[in-house]
């Protein structure tokens, strides 16, 4: 009855380097798991605490933020702010007893198509091992 668990991961992806890497992966015909769903944002610094929480609340098994490399933010401080916010939300997740590993921030250069795909696979694996989000499991009991 129970099908194979396929995690669903929402990726907030900065419109600069990380998106470029993702597009490059596409044009190089590299594959990454369909579990990763990408939302492009103007800057990773534009992703707020509420966005991360809402993604989880709406049933994402994992959330990742993809920003530019340290010091390489187009808007100078966006990726730094994202890093701090991710740390903050991880604390909040602790309060909710949701595994902190479900949330991660990655930094990309613009031509890292291979790394993008590799990380996409790794993230999917990590979340697959963690299992479905606790929100779903307990909810399905009702």
């Amino acid at each position: 009855m129970k099908g194979k668990f396929e995690p669903l991961i929402l990726a907030f992806c900065c419109n600069y380097c990380p998106s470029c890497s993702a597009d490059l992966a596409k044009s190089a015909k590299l594959q990454y798991p369909p579990n990763i769903r990408i939302i492009k944002v103007p800057c990773i610094g534009a992703v707020g605490i509420i966005h991360i929480l809402k993604a989880l609340e709406n049933g994402a098994d994992g959330v990742c933020l993809m920003g530019c490399l340290e010091g390489k933010c187009e808007y100078s401080t966006g990726n730094f702010r994202a890093m701090k916010r991710v740390q903050y939300v991880k604390k909040l997740l602790g309060k909710l007893s949701i595994e902190k590993e479900r949330l991660e921030l990655y930094n990309f250069a613009a031509a890292e198509a291979y790394r993008f795909c590799k990380l996409a696979r790794e993230v999917t694996e990590t979340v697959r091992t963690l299992g479905p989000t606790p929100l779903k499991i307990n909810n399905s009991k009702i």
Partner: peptide, 16 residues
């Protein structure tokens, strides 16, 4: 953004 969040997450619900 929140709507997009929801939209992207929904079709996948079927997997579990």
């Amino acid at each position: 953004i929140l709507t997009k969040c929801k939209a992207l997450l929904e079709p996948f619900m079927g997997y579990v």
